[in-house]
Design a protein around this nucleic acid. Structure first.
Length: 456
RNA sequence: UCCCCGGUAGCUCAAUCGGCAGAGCGGGUGGCUGUUAACCACUAGGUUGCUGGUUCGAGUCCGGCCCGGGGAGCCA
């Protein structure tokens, strides 16, 4: 049986409980420094937290003097010793090694990770080793905290977690290109009809919202769009809450509460990781997060946004005209220059949005949609009140030339016990990007899939 | 898919007008009385992405291709 180590995180959190006592730790070596006559310093990281544990190895012990020669960056070890206050600056505690077990060596001549900064492009090529770096380790812990907090947020508010299908038969009109399911033997006929990887769980979530009241899905989604940018993935995770008996205002409030909650939780729980991002990736990280965690969003209508852009005095590459979609440059102006905080743009022209969005009562040209835009990333949440009136929905589907037969089940929800309902979608990786400041979304997911790239 | 930039040692990058391909880090060896990406000395390490062309001579100029990055579109 493998001897269990005390997590480094626990050693730092409760150091007084362990001082001057014999303890055991497991982990991977980050660096080794040999120093003047007979002492080596090794930095051990076990992934439990950002910090390394400094281990002191006295060469006066013949046994250790032999072992230390094999200890290089990347190797895995178990160390027993006495935890002491560190006499030197840089760390409060250190482990005075009595014995070291090497589980797995790492040949320094070929081990790709060095004790220095690597480019993210290089690390992506060794995606199986990059979680051992400071940055990817920290991103992974933050992503975990966000995922956990998402469940907590919705569970605390009475939402039920539902699992919507990965394999679907609808292509959720307007959500981009789809991957089709083909089997080696049956071709596309395995299910007796064409099937696709889901682009969104929303339509199925609506089914359960109109039965359980408040639900959310949280899972992978797939887009076959040939878009190669630092903000797009072919496989990404989405959180999609759906509420019955709710309108656009409820939807906005939920989205705002959620963002406040998630950011606050990460600020509380991942201080060291965030401090690393502030230091090496984004100097303004904390002020940016504080703004989103505490302030209410600026809410403006699409029509107001168009007016603001027209009167801004800015020269835009793309035209600003009512009925035209907001371009990235327009969104950036609103979030980064005009308001300098998240902006919710509501009531878009119905021609720009999918069939399921509710047509506004007071202005039939627009739908009860919302896009929440944040600085740097752009759209992070998209949502709407859903059209719950059978006749209006049917008319919308006809106008968009949809195959009505494929959506009888969806229309049934409006035929039997329909109710006002609303929901939104949050792209998890974009949110991770926003929180950590990593420039490329490929650093926000462990195994990024993009056009032409699928490792492992 | 379009536009722009790039590809030189294991990594990060230099190489002036077309004229002997270099440095730091990493590796190896040796040194150094507690180091903080330790430090000092020595040392090994190259098909300059591939391909065709121009030239006495190409890392450098031209064509084609491959790969990477940034921006745009599409979207979350």
């Amino acid at each position: 049986m493998v001897r269990k180590g005390i997590p480094v995180k626990k050693l730092f959190a409760d150091m007084n409980d362990f001082l001057d006592k014999e303890i055991f730790v497991n982990g991977w070596i980050r660096t080794r420094r040999d120093s003047k006559a007979g002492i080596s310093f090794i930095e051990l990281n076990d992934g439990s937290c950002f910090k390394n544990l400094q281990i002191i190895v006295e060469h006066s012990t013949p046994h250790l003097k032999e072992i230390i020669k094999k200890i290089n960056t990347g190797c895995s070890v178990g160390v027993s010793g006495v935890l002491r206050e560190s006499p030197a600056k840089g760390q409060p505690i250190e482990l005075d090694a009595r014995d070291i077990t090497i589980y797995g060596e790492a040949d320094p001549a070929s081990y790709p990770l060095q004790k220095k900064r690597h480019s993210f492009e290089f690390l992506r090529q060794i995606a199986h080793l990059r979680p051992r770096t400071n940055t990817i380790g920290a991103v992974t812990r933050v992503r975990n905290q966000i995922s956990y907090a998402i469940h907590q947020f919705f569970q605390e508010r009475g939402f039920y977690y539902i699992h919507t299908p990965i394999i679907t038969t609808s292509d959720c009109e307007g959500a981009g290109e789809v991957f089709q399911i083909i089997t080696e033997g049956e071709g596309e006929n395995f299910f007796g009809r064409p099937t696709y990887l889901t682009v969104s769980g929303q339509l199925q979530a609506e089914i359960y919202a109109l039965a359980l009241g408040k639900v959310y899905t949280f899972g992978p989604t797939f887009r076959a769009e040939n878009s190669n940018t630092r903000r797009h993935l072919s496989e990404f995770w989405m959180v999609e809450p759906e509420m019955a008996f709710a309108d656009l205002e409820d939807d906005l409030n939920l989205a705002q509460d959620m963002l406040h909650y998630l950011i606050s939780r990460v600020l509380d729980s991942c201080k060291e990781d965030l401090e690393f991002f502030r230091k090496f990736i984004d100097k303004g990280l904390f002020s940016r997060l504080e703004v989103v965690a505490t302030e209410s969003f600026e809410v403006i209508t699409y029509t107001e946004a168009i007016e603001m852009l027209k009167n801004s005095g800015e020269s835009f590459e793309f035209p600003v005209e009512w009925g035209e979609d907001l371009q990235a440059e327009h969104e950036r102006f609103l979030t980064e220059k005009k308001f300098k905080k998240p902006v919710a743009v509501i009531h878009y022209p119905r021609t720009l949005k999918p069939f399921y969005m509710k047509v506004n009562d007071d202005d039939e040209r627009t739908v009860a949609a919302m896009d929440i835009l944040v600085p740097e990333i752009g759209e992070i949440i998209g949502g709407s009140e859903r059209e719950y009136r059978y006749d209006v929905l049917l008319e919308q589907m006809r106008q968009k030339n949809m195959n009505i037969d494929d959506y009888q089940w969806y229309l049934d929800l409006r035929r039997y016990g329909s109710a006002p309902h609303a929901g939104f979608g949050l792209g998890l990786e974009r949110f991770v990007q926003f929180i950590t400041g990593v420039q490329n979304i490929r650093e926000a997911i462990p195994f990024p899939r993009t056009p032409g790239h699928a490792l492992f």
